[in-house]
């Protein structure tokens, strides 16, 4: 978020929160919304569209499939030994390896995608974050310049914020 100030509005109700977000969007300011649970209303309002995590997941799954089959086939060719009259490259037997590697790398890539897009780990203090946001309150944190603070505070209060505070150091 840009701006040297972070104005935080703490909300009890979701409809007040969405009202505040719409007001901030109308002012063309940067903001973040915090909520104790995922919420479609907030998501559609603030970050519409699908998450790009799916591309990372797909890449991982395909990589895993290729890796699993390649591992089994290349190892078998490197040490060709017939067992139980099966072919050296016995594709039905290798399906399990390919299948498990698809899931394994698909899952690992999904985790990496999640960490990347969520920008975590990042354990440092977030301006405007309030511990109540993981409990039962919603939060709208707006980044702005000092001369805009009063206008933003008024907008958040009018939307129904229980409490409005200003934080430094964005």
């Amino acid at each position: 978020m840009r701006g040297s100030k972070a104005v935080t509005g703490v909300f009890k109700y979701i409809d007040d929160t969405t009202k505040a977000v719409k007001r901030v969007q109308a002012e063309n300011l940067e903001y973040k919304v915090y909520s104790p649970v995922p919420n479609h209303e907030i998501e559609e309002l603030t970050v519409p569209g699908k998450s790009p995590v799916r591309f990372v997941t797909g890449t991982g799954a395909v990589t895993g499939l290729v890796f699993g089959f390649a591992l089994a086939i290349l190892c078998s060719l490197d040490y060709p030994m017939r067992v139980s009259a099966k072919d050296v490259v016995s594709v039905p037997g290798f399906v399990v390896i390919g299948y498990e590697c698809t899931i394994l790398l698909g899952g690992i890539f999904t985790l990496l995608g999640l960490l990347h897009f969520c920008r975590i780990p990042d354990i440092f203090r977030k301006p405007g974050y309030d511990p109540r946001f993981s409990d039962d309150r919603f939060g709208v944190v707006v980044g702005c310049e000092p001369q805009q603070v009063d206008r933003v505070k008024a907008a958040l209060s009018e939307a129904g914020a229980e409490e409005v505070s200003v934080d430094e150091g964005l």
């Binding site: 915090y34 919420n39 907030i42 970050v47 897009f117 969520c118 975590i120 946001f133 993981s134």
Partner: peptide, 9 residues
Amino acid sequence: TGSNRNWKH
């Protein structure tokens, strides 16, 4: 933090 982007992804 449970931000809107966190939850989305």
